[in-house]
Every structure is written in structure tokens, then in C-alpha cells.
Amino acid sequence: MGNVSSKNFVPRSRKFVRRNQKSFFQHKHDRKYLTSIMSAVKRAQQWATFARTWHLFDATWQNPFDSAQVIIKHLMGLHKPIYHPMNDCGDHVVVMNSRDIALPGDEWRKRVYFHHTTYPGGASWTLAWELHNKNPTLVIKKAVYNGMDGNLQRRHTMQRLHVFPDDKIPEEILKNISNQIRYLRPVPTRLDHISPEEVENYPKIVDYPKQYILR
């Protein structure tokens, strides 16, 4: 290599110059490499932080519009200190008993869901009770969907919501669940669900007169 004439000497690009071993380990990116070795013992903790958790929510007697806010919080990962809008840290939420939701006031009769087929005259308005009769999961699904900001992430976030009209949840979903979201309001006990003897033995203040007509 000593007598390379200047005519056929082609300087190699810096990129292809081979670095010796010492300078290789002093490269600035190697700090990241060393750090990853140090944190290797904390791998499991790292996995647990970024793992998707499955939450169960029992919608019996719950207001779907209030519940939606709690469900959205878990779907988007807003309940985690590592939350970031660009960080895909949302969890799965399984909603059961969506048939037994309780709408406030006269919302069953007054709330209207709009749909348009995009053809002329294709508009249709469905009352909440009609929609619920057709599909008992749609009211809560729409409450969650409409409760979120409209962005590209919304439809992907919705994929993590699983709604079931009753308590029959498939085994492969049930086995993932590790947490239950606390209900927003206690479920009242209905009189016709209490056993007759318990009702009979409940302490009374007065007896109805014999000629009093109960309807």
C-alpha cells in the first residue's frame, strides 16, 4: 500500500471507514446499549408497566353516559402515570349486562339516534328504546364512541371495548380479565327479588285496615 499513486487513489467515504474496537465502544449510541444491560433485571417490571390489562365493568342499573367516561379513561390509558397521547397504553374493557343499563329521566323515550344511508331520503331516526330492543349493546357503545374526541385513534380504541348484553362472556375473554371497575351507583334491590318470607317478617309500623284496597 506504500506506493499508491495519486492517480488511482480513491478516498473511501467516512461511512465505510472501519472503526477500531476502541472507538466502536466510545460511540455515543453505545450508552443506550449499556443502559439496556443494566435494566435487564427489571425486564418483568417493564413488561408489567406496558402490558394491556383487561377490566370488567358490570353495567347493571348504571347510567351509560356516566359509565362511558370511566370506560373511556381505561380504554385510553388515562388512568396510568405513563399516559401520552402518542403512547399506545390503553387497556381492554369488557362490559357485561349491557341489557340492564338505566337511562336517566325519560331518555328512553326522548333520546334519538340518527342514521343516514347517504341516499336521498335515507335519513332515519331511532328512539333509544327501539335501538335497545334491536341491539342491547349499541347504546353503551355509542355513548363511549361519542364521548371520545374524533381522531384517527378513536376507532382503534373502540376495538378494545367488548360489550355483552348479559353475563355470558366467552371463556377466552373471561380468562384475560384481572380487574373489575367499581360501579358508579349501587344496584338497588327490587321488591320482587326479595323472598316472600323475608318481606313477611320485615318489621312493620302499621297494618293496613281490612277494607283498604291495595292495587
Binding site: L78, H79, K80, P81, I82, Y83, H84
Partner: peptide
């Protein structure tokens, strides 16, 4: 905003 969101979550835990 981000710190507030994250702190709200951390406190709720």
C-alpha cells in the same frame, strides 16, 4: 396539560 393528566392518574392510584 400532560403533567396534570399523568398526575391525576398517579394520585387516583
Amino acid at each position: 396539560n400532560l403533567w396534570n393528566t399523568r398526575l391525576t392518574a398517579a394520585c387516583a392510584e
